[in-house]
Amino acid sequence: MKIALFATCIVDGMYPRAAQATVAVLERLGHEVVFPKGQACCGQMHVNSGYFKEAVPVVANHVRAFESEDYDVAVAPSGSCVASVKHQHPMVARRAGDAGLEERATAVGKKTYELSELLVDVLGVTNPAEQLGSYFPHTVTYHPSCHGMRLLKLGDRQAGLLRGVKGLELLDLPEADQCCGFGGTFSVKNAYVSSAMLADKAANIRSTGASVCAGGDYSCLMHIGGGLSRQGSGVATLHLAEILASTEAAPVAVPGPAGQPVKVVVK
């Protein structure tokens, strides 16, 4: 299968290792990965902040980039950005009175999958340890991000994949379905409420005693990780893709409390 990677702007610029790990996992399964060069961002930050006019060129760019390449399906290591591509893009086009863009955006959205959705529903990954050689000998707790959980209805897909990783001990996160308080510009516009939500999320994560908090969205993980780091908790945050990409031959290092960079071995 030819798979187009939508890295998402935050992973592209700040957490390239999650996109590298996504490539590694897909290539390990024998698929070809392409990276449409024109891609930039889903525009969710603009839409969710009410800047619909400014979102239009961002949406149009995404649609253009993902129409110009030949591929079977597109994938992004983010439930939130995929939900934006699927649900917000047609709405932004409609609001701008651009029926053509709405139709094209809908077509791109239909071919776009969140990583765990692609792995489980399309590529049939049921046992990451066997099928991907996934190995991660650490205690992990898992935060299901809101948009993956509620907009994409990912259900148990991400946690199920984590459970299938050799050596990984998954510890239940209390109040897991509660938002971490990120919410994009909410975190600066309503910084105090957001921080109060984060404090509770961080306390729940720390109560599990896990050394890593995993998730499927680096936006939420940046928020949670930023709080855990400020608290000096010593708990690291890692993307699901990085954990799936980790093998016995090339285990992914758990970033220490000092946040040392992680090396991911591709292929």
Binding site: A7, D12, M14, S195, G227, S229, R230
Partner: peptide, 26 residues
């Protein structure tokens, strides 16, 4: 306004290269 973020959260130092650059080199 970004001070609202750093009131309770750190930001990691950015990586030395973006995914886009890594991909292009690869």
């Amino acid at each position: 306004i970004a001070a609202g973020w750093t009131q309770s959260r750190d930001i990691p130092a950015p990586p030395s290269q973006s995914f886009r650059d890594w991909w292009a080199k690869e």
